[in-house]
Simulated assay, not measured.
Amino acid sequence: MAKQKHLMIFRFSAMGDVAMLVPVLRCLYAQNQNIQITLVTRDRFAPIFKEFSELQLMTPDFAGTHKGIKGLYRLYKALKQTKPHRIADIHHNLRSRILRLFFRLSFIRVKAIDKGYAERKRLTHPTKKTMKPLTPQHYRYVEVFSRLGFALDVDKHEFPIKPGLPKSSLEIDLPADRKWIGIAPFAAHPGKVYPLDLMQKVVGYLQQEHSVFLFGHGPKEAAQIHVWAKAYPHVIPNALEMPFSDQLDLIANLDVMISMDSANGHLAANFGVPVITLWGMTHPFLGFSAFGQNNHLLVDREKFPKVPTSAYGKTMPKGYRDAMRTISPEEVIEMVLEKI
């Protein structure tokens, strides 16, 4: 029997990038015998990986115990005790670079992700733009693991059996003849959020014949969700009160998900749920599309040629606030109806 290889992976944030690791992990386990994997990530992301019974999670406390250089050295000592043979840094930020250095000094093989900064800069340049698709993030992850000697082909990915519905969802009175549509109408940056007045038209239409589950986080998003839930009888806000683990099980059982360029799209795609992504200041050419999905609705680049303006949608050029209005509610509704 071949000696077990212990792979340690660094990916601390953000949720969407962490979620994109899931299909790659499935392939790692399926295509490599005698592999042990330790994932170093934040505690709040642990439910994303609950399907992996053999996965060891280590959750650093960057605000406390593992803060600063001394804290990172303390974290390194704790990680080293698990005796990893290979380190895959698929985050490549300051913290992970420092940890990589510590492990290299211990003569442990380390490889880091190539984020393609130069290509990304050309794609997001406001005037001298090169509209060429970049390597998808999932394949950037694969490339790191391949360089560490692990066989990996995500084209052979297989979805697991979907989880059952959480108990918290069974309390909802849902007609059996309605499709379940998830909508995650928010994102971290305004440049990635579809105008709420247009999204209301989408919600209002779809809830007439289907059950619409709304997903959000924080008091501001919750307030908007409750406004729609009060206005429309088949809009369901219950996900707001569910633990994150239960939300994931609910998402897995949706018939379709409407998402911005945000984490919810990746979470749904991990279960094979059709995902319709509305792109604002970002663009699928940047490589952050949901796994196995090609259901894109894009801003009109003839009117707004600076799109994509940045990799994460932070940059909003003057006069671009209404760019997402070039995606009509009718287009969104039509694509949803095609998928269900």
Rank of each mutant, 00 (worst) to 15 (best):
Q33S: 07
K77M: 01
L101R: 07
S13Y: 07
T59S: 14
I37L: 01
E51N: 04
K111A: 15
F45W: 12
T82W: 11
L72T: 01
K128M: 09
T82G: 01
I37A: 01
E54H: 15
I108A: 04
N34M: 09
R122I: 01
E54T: 12
G116T: 02
P84Q: 03
S13L: 14
K80W: 13
G16I: 05
E119K: 13
L25A: 07
I35S: 05
K80G: 02
Y29Q: 05
P60H: 05
S53F: 08
K77L: 10
R122L: 15
T59F: 10
M20A: 14
L39I: 13
Q36W: 12
Y73F: 05
Q56W: 03
T130G: 04
L123P: 07
R26A: 09
Q31L: 05
V110D: 05
G68I: 06
L21R: 08
E51P: 01
T65L: 11
Q36R: 15
F107A: 13
K77Y: 07
K129E: 00
K121G: 07
V40W: 06
L57R: 02
K80S: 07
F103R: 09
L57D: 00
T130S: 11
P23N: 10
D61I: 08
G68N: 04
F62S: 10
D61K: 07
D89R: 14
R95T: 12
I87W: 08
F45M: 12
Y29H: 11
D43E: 12
S96H: 06
D61M: 06
S106E: 04
H91Q: 08
R42E: 13
R122A: 15
R120K: 09
A78C: 07
V22H: 10
L72P: 01
M20I: 12
I69G: 03
I35V: 13
V110R: 10
